[in-house]
Amino acid sequence: MASPAIRFDTLGQVFDTRSGRTEALRDVSFEVARHEFVAILGPSGCGKSTLLRLIAGLLRPTSGSVEVFGLQVGEPRDDIGIVFQKPTLLPWATVEDNVVFPARHKRGRVSPEERERAAALLRMVGLEGFAKRLPDELSGGMQQRVGIARALLMDPDILLMDEPFSALDALTREVMGFDLLRIFAERPKTVVFITHSVSEAALLADRVLVMTGRPGSVLTDVVVPVGRPRGPETANEKAIHDLSAYLRSFLLQKAA
């Protein structure tokens, strides 16, 4: 049997800060299969972002292990893309140059194929015709689309998304969610998606992990009982509603 895309095994993470030691994560174990979309839901400060940084190889675990495709994560890998909470684009570079930035930054040059890929990605995220614009000229949602295109440039197997839509207004957020469903239907990826939104998690993910507050650990692991493809009509399905209600009550119970 092939190894899972991502495997956390009794992982613990402790940070030494000025005010003392902070235990961010405790005994975290879960797996993410290849091309699975896993949403991580939890209160602020439960170490969700730390999980992503561990997968990305930007952080070494204090105890336990993180494996990506069967290999212990030591340093950052080429097959992982990251979408941040804020778009964090380069304000001096055009949309196109922002999308090809990973190539330019890694190797110092951009190949014609990568330029083509960037154009295709911009089409895919609905920004055709905006290639020569500067980020400032774009709305927040459009900027985040550029951020997604940038993360997809190297065609990573794994996409890490850290509350990518939390800075957007409710309507844009919903539209972006449906766009994401369409994008991943075209081009399946292993996705770890961090969010505060219960309905977003239920609509987008194959599985939802709910985490507790600090020190963070996985409280429950729920499979979303709805198949793919999904679209705007999926949001109205009873199973999604039921799951959202369940997750919400679960979170509220734990918060109390």
Binding site: G57, F84, T88
Partner: peptide, 18 residues
């Protein structure tokens, strides 16, 4: 500089001078 871009740089394993 936004810390996200520094993380992006590190995740790409780009040379430090870049």
């Amino acid at each position: 500089t936004p810390p996200e871009l520094i993380e992006l740089s590190r995740s790409l394993r780009a040379p430090a001078w870049r």
